[in-house]
Structures are given as C-alpha cells and as structure tokens.
Computed example of a mutant assay.
Amino acid sequence: MNIFVLTGAGVSAESGLGTFRDTSGLWTRFDPAKLATPEAFKRDPAQVNAFYDARRANLRGAQPNAAHFALADLQRRLAETGGRLFLCTQNIDDLHERAGAQHVVHMHGELFKARCPGCEAVVDWRDDLSGARCADCGGGLRPHVVWFGETPLEMDAIYDALEEADLFVAIGTSGSVYPAAGFVSEARRAGIRTCEINLDPSDNARAFDERRYGVASEMVPAWVEDVLGGR
C-alpha cells in the first residue's frame, strides 16, 4: 500500500509550535508582508532574521508528539511489507525526523537550515542568523524557507508520488495554501481515495472522501492503527 500524507501546522500545534492561519495564528499577530517575502528580506534582513531566530529558538525547545511518532511508525511498518509512506510536510520544523521518520519532503523549507541568496548554498543552521555570512561567498544568509511569492520545493517529486499513491491523507492543514490545497483535487481526479484528519474542517473539507476531527495526538495514532489493522 502506498500512502501520501501531507501534514500542516496542526500536526505540530500540540508540541508548542504556533500555527499560522487560525484565529490565534502567527499571521494574526505579525504581518507576513514584512516578515515572509523576498522583498521584506531585501528591505530589512535584520528584522526578518530576528523573526525566524525566535521561531528557531521555539523549535529547539519543542518535542514531537504522538502524531509525529505514529506517522514515523507507519512509515517504518509499511516499508517492512513493501509499501510506502510518502511524508510531505508544509511545516518547517524537524519534528517528523526527531520522531523517527526516515524521509520527509519539506515543501516549504526547513527552519534548521540557511540559504545564501547569492550562491544558493544551503547549510545546516541551528543558531541565530542575524549577521551570519556564507562560508562559500561571504554573502548574508537567509532562512531556508519558502516565502510568499516563491515556489515550493521538490514539486516534481511530490506530484510523482501523488500519482503513485493508493490513499491521500491531509493532516492538520488549513486547505487554503496552494499548491498544497490542490493536492486533494489532483488525487480525486486520479481516482485516489482521500482522507482529512484535522482539529476542525479545513477550507476544502468537502473534497475529501473521509473526514476525522479531533486533536492530532489522538486522531492520527487511531487512524494509523486502523490502516495497519486493515491491510
């Protein structure tokens, strides 16, 4: 069985990481136009880096929750029987990896990496970025995250995996951020069964064949056990 799982901020909310688009999300308190665009970084790189330095500090103190561990276990157990869990996340945290997931596609980048806008070098980075310079060319570093107006990463691999899936599952996503919000429509056109697991219905909830609502730390492990028990 090949399963494509897309995760969003809701899967990490119980680990203490803020979501972005709900009523108390980060973008209700901060202006993304000033913090999450290439233009904002060009205008005031110190301000942008300071915002992501705070996010990075928050992530250093976070721990995976039961939803992360359940997905890592599902990935391992499917692989043992010749199946596959393609784990694609909109999140820039590393909690899937810390829970034991072996391969995670971060379509919106990774907070614990930095990128040089000049030479495009990407490096692991866990400290503050303010004032940091590229070791290759000496340019100032930026967070290795996809900002508004930029193209998400690894889209060819993502669409290839979606075409090969038997089941598409979206977990903790708002259903409002494209292209990820369009994955369910792509899956349905290909005849792939779809499932949403979320705290509340997403913006595109009606597009899913199956819907399960509740906190991720309870709903995801229960769904994983249903999948493994029904193979």
Results as ranks from 00 to 15, higher is better:
E39V: 03
A40C: 13
A40I: 11
F41I: 09
F41R: 13
K42A: 15
D44N: 15
A46G: 07
A46M: 04
V48I: 06
V48R: 06
N49V: 06
N49W: 02
N49Q: 15
A50E: 15
Y52R: 05
D53E: 06
D53M: 02
A54H: 06
R55Y: 00
R55L: 04
R56C: 00
R56D: 01
A57M: 10
A57F: 01
R60I: 07
R60M: 13
R60K: 15
A62V: 00
Q63L: 15
P64F: 08
P64H: 08
P64V: 10
A66I: 03
A66S: 14
A67G: 15
A67N: 07
F69Y: 11
F69M: 08
A70R: 06
L71W: 09
L71Y: 05
A72I: 03
A72Q: 09
D73G: 12
D73K: 13
D73V: 04
L74V: 09
L74M: 11
L74I: 10
L74W: 07
L74E: 08
Q75Y: 05
Q75T: 07
R76D: 12
R76C: 05
R77K: 13
R77A: 09
L78M: 06
A79C: 04
A79R: 10
E80P: 00
T81M: 09
T81K: 14
G82W: 05
G82T: 11
G83K: 01
R84W: 06
R84V: 03
L85N: 09
F86K: 13
F86I: 04
F86V: 10
L87I: 03
L87A: 10
C88G: 05
T89D: 10
T89M: 06
Q90H: 02
Q90T: 01
N91F: 06
I92A: 07
D93Y: 01
D93V: 04
D94G: 03
H96S: 02
H96C: 03
E97R: 13
R98T: 11
R98E: 13
A99R: 08
A101I: 05
A101P: 03
A101V: 05
A101M: 07
Q102P: 00
V105F: 01
V105H: 03
H106D: 07
H106E: 02
E110H: 00
E110L: 03
L111R: 08
F112E: 15
F112A: 09
K113H: 13
K113T: 12
K113D: 09
K113R: 15
A114P: 13
C116H: 06
G118A: 14
G118T: 10
G118I: 05
G118Y: 07
C119S: 09
E120S: 12
E120T: 09
A121S: 14
A121L: 14
V122Q: 12
V122S: 08
D124F: 03
W125Q: 12
R126K: 15
R126S: 15
D127W: 06
D128Q: 14
L129G: 15
G131T: 02
A132Q: 15
